[in-house]
Write a protein that binds this DNA or RNA. Structure first.
Length: 481
RNA sequence: GUCCCCAUCGUCUAGCCAGGCCUAGGACUCCACCCUUUCAAGGUGGCGACACGGGUUCGAAUCCCGUUGGGGACACCA
């Protein structure tokens, strides 16, 4: 195992989001590729919004995706605690040291003071509206008997620069950085400070996160400097956007890993898909197993441009993974979905689900396909759609033969295998017609549609009784017109 | 508004760092044809992009500058 240590540090305020999942996945791949350590840290310092359910949801989402962690709140490890809130004493102590070293100071300004002064400066046409440094006069002084926050003394000039793992050199002018709060007046450390203390304590070497954190990085670098701690390498990966081009959020519908799971997306498919959002191996290959991804993943191939989540492609990819599944698993998926919609009872027998799955073939990309392609099974009223009517109108002779086809099917010894197909083709041949002349009208009669499953599969799925009934009904209706 | 990041088909992207091999390649979606006397699958083909303007250069998608556009951050949230 190398010295490389990376972490995924979500705050437990909801479901595991696909954006977070992808960040976790990149970190995981980076760690596994370089034989480093992948750490899970829960940033639960926002007590009001953090919940135990969210922590469980994060564990569950990551496990489902196959992202296992080497160290974390549940499995422990040599650099614990892994719950950010539990390291609070250490964080406070670090702030105390900064106070003593005159690298931080107590700030007695109230939020109202701050807001008032900021508004005044804004009105005065100033563009830099960060903290104005009023309490810098407190540097080195003992505490007064008033509530205070602790601010880090930030340099007034110079440049904060780092070589970003993902996008090269990034720099900020020091004067754009204010003396930010590291400990609130209620005694709790802020994110930018807690994360630094934690990352240092956990010996994190590479911080890979979303590029919405870019502006936090210079502040964190300042904190490392003040603490005289070596800063890790930073890498900022582009974010995932919704279809409207803004940051992906709940507004865009399904965005949690759980939601995709519930849609019927397979974990391997989501894993593969997410890996390809902001990363690419070459100009053609895009289907990878986890092992292959671990082997070929490198930071150099990370992209810089934000990407939009493409549900259609995800579903296509899911289909690829579905096709590779053993038939038993596909049957189980189909059965569960039919069950959940209370449609299982429309199927004639136990084996029907299996036959349906086989008839579906590669059309079976998502669980709902089982219903979308077989809706004719779940109703007794077939009303041909517009396309269907037009297609049927092209085959009047075929329609006229439908009653005879029905009779032949009725007299078949068994209604299975190739029997129905042979009967239909035999009849067509005797009458000197093409099989298609019977096939097309039969499809309309049985399903109401022009497209669909193989017609012989449709007959078997429907069962003899319903097939015959629909054939006759359609023919007499057509004759009546 | 200020700061930062980004800019190739509708979408995901390759190419850019080391300029010519790019009349820009692949994938998803859509369309057409072939195959199957049905439907998928499969095969073939098509639609479709270097944001714009200046440079640098014999030569720019690739390097530089600007403009425009998009995104993100501007908290005693994380």
């Amino acid at each position: 195992m190398s010295e490389l240590r990376v972490r995924f540090a979500p705050s437990p305020t909801g479901m595991l989001h696909v954006g977070g999942a992808r960040t976790a996945l990149f970190n995981w791949l980076h760690a596994r590729n370089r034989r480093g350590t992948f750490v899970l840290r829960i940033e639960d310092t926002d007590r009001a919004r953090s919940t135990e359910e969210s922590i469980q949801a994060i564990y569950e989402g990551m496990r489902w995706l196959g992202l296992d962690w080497d160290e974390g709140p549940d499995v422990g490890g040599p650099y614990g605690p892994y719950l950010q809130s539990e390291r609070r004493p250490e964080q406070i102590e670090a702030a105390q040291r900064l106070l003593e070293a005159a690298r931080a100071y107590r700030c007695y300004c109230t939020p109202e003071d701050l807001e008032r002064r900021r508004a005044a400066r804004l009105e005065g046409g100033e563009s830099q509206v960060g903290y104005d440094g009023t309490c810098r006069k407190e540097i080195g002084k003992p505490a007064r008997d008033e509530p205070f926050a602790i601010r880090l003394l930030a340099p007034d000039e110079g440049e904060i620069v780092w070589e970003d793992l993902c996008r090269g050199e990034i720099s900020f002018q020091a004067e754009t950085l204010e003396d930010f709060v590291i400990v609130r007046s209620d005694g709790s450390p802020t994110y930018n400070f807690a994360a630094v203390v934690d990352d240092a304590a956990m010996k994190i070497t590479d911080v890979l996160r979303g590029d919405d954190h870019i502006s936090n990085t210079p502040r964190q670098i300042l904190a490392y400097r003040a603490l005289e701690l070596p800063a890790p390498r930073f890498g900022h990966v582009p974010m995932i956007l919704g279809p409207d081009g803004t940051r992906l959020s709940k507004r865009h519908g399904a965005t949690s890993v759980t939601a995709y799971r519930e849609q019927g997306i397979l974990p391997d498919a989501l894993f593969n898909f997410l890996a390809l959002l902001g990363w690419a191996y070459d100009d053609s290959r895009e289907l990878f197993t986890r092992e292959e991804l671990i082997e070929v993943f490198t930071l150099e191939k990370l992209g810089k441009t934000p990407s939009t989540f493409n549900q259609e492609k995800l579903e296509w990819m899911n289909g690829v993974y579905m096709a590779a599944l053993p038939i038993e698993e596909k049957v189980a998926i189909a059965r569960a979905h039919l069950e959940s919609k209370d449609l299982l009872r429309h199927l004639p027998d136990e084996d029907a689900v299996r036959r349906l799955v086989e008839a579906l073939g590669e059309r079976f990309k998502m669980p709902h396909d089982v219903i979308d392609y077989a809706d004719f099974l779940f109703t007794d009223r077939i009303v041909p759609d517009e396309e269907g009517r037009q297609r049927a109108a092209q085959f009047p002779e075929g329609i006229a033969l439908l009653p005879e086809l029905a009779s032949r099917l009725e007299s078949l010894e068994r209604f299975e295998g190739e029997q129905a197909e042979e009967a239909l083709r035999g009849l067509a041949k005797e009458k000197g017609r093409k099989a298609g002349d019977l096939i097309h009208p039969s499809r309309i009669a049985l399903t109401g549609k022009k497209h669909g499953l193989s017609i012989f599969d449709v007959m078997l799925l429907l069962g003899r009784e319903r097939t015959i009934r629909r054939l006759r009904a359609f023919a007499s209706e057509a004759a009546g017109d």
